[in-house]
Amino acid sequence: MNQIFWPEGYLPGFTENFASNEIIVAGLSAADIWPLLSNAPQWPTYYANSANVRFYDLKGPQLEDRRRFYFETFGFPVEAQCNEYVPPVHGRPGRIAWHGWAGEGDTRLDVHHAWLIEDLPGGRVRILTQETQKGKPAQALATAKPNPMINGHQDWLERLVSAARKTRQ
Rank of each mutant, 00 (worst) to 15 (best):
V125F: 05
P7N: 08
I33K: 03
A114L: 06
G94E: 03
Q130V: 00
G100D: 08
D57M: 07
L36Q: 07
G122E: 13
Q133L: 14
E16N: 09
R165N: 02
G91Q: 10
L120S: 10
G75N: 10
L37P: 01
S38V: 12
Q42N: 11
A40I: 12
N21L: 02
A26C: 09
I117Q: 07
P121D: 15
V25I: 10
N147M: 06
F71S: 03
Y10L: 05
T129Q: 15
C82D: 10
K59A: 14
Y10A: 03
N52Q: 12
F5G: 01
Q139E: 15
I23S: 09
S20C: 12
Q169R: 13
P41W: 07
R67L: 13
N39C: 14
N151G: 05
Y56P: 00
G105K: 09
E158Q: 14
L128W: 00
E104I: 10
A144S: 11
P77W: 02
A80H: 07
V89P: 00
Y46M: 06
T73C: 12
F55I: 04
R68G: 00
L157H: 00
Q133E: 12
A144F: 05
D155R: 12
N49M: 13
L116I: 14
E158I: 01
S20H: 14
A40K: 04
L141Q: 05
A30F: 01
A31P: 04
L157G: 01
G122F: 13
P35Y: 08
A138Y: 02
E131F: 02
R168M: 11
S20I: 03
A26P: 02
D65Q: 14
R92E: 13
L160V: 05
A102D: 03
G94R: 02
H153E: 03
S162C: 01
L109T: 06
A97W: 01
P88R: 07
Q133C: 06
P41S: 10
E84Y: 03
P148I: 04
L120I: 08
P148F: 03
G27D: 02
G103M: 08
V161P: 01
E79M: 11
T143G: 01
N49W: 11
V161S: 02
Y10V: 00
E84A: 15
T45N: 15
E118R: 08
W115L: 04
V25N: 09
G27N: 02
K145H: 09
H112I: 05
F71A: 10
L11Q: 14
F74G: 03
Q3S: 14
T45V: 03
I96V: 11
R95T: 04
H153S: 05
L120N: 09
A26D: 14
K166N: 06
F14W: 06
W156P: 01
L37R: 05
T15F: 02
W115E: 04
D119T: 10
G100M: 07
S38P: 00
N52D: 15
R54D: 04
A102L: 00
P87L: 07
S20L: 12
Q154R: 13
D106V: 12
N83F: 11
G122C: 13
F55M: 05
R168N: 13
R126C: 06
R68I: 05
K136P: 00
E104P: 00
R108K: 15
C82M: 14
G105T: 07
H99R: 13
P88G: 10
F5T: 11
T15D: 04
L116S: 09
M1N: 07
D119M: 12
G94S: 07
P44L: 08
N2C: 07
W34M: 12
T167S: 14
S29H: 03
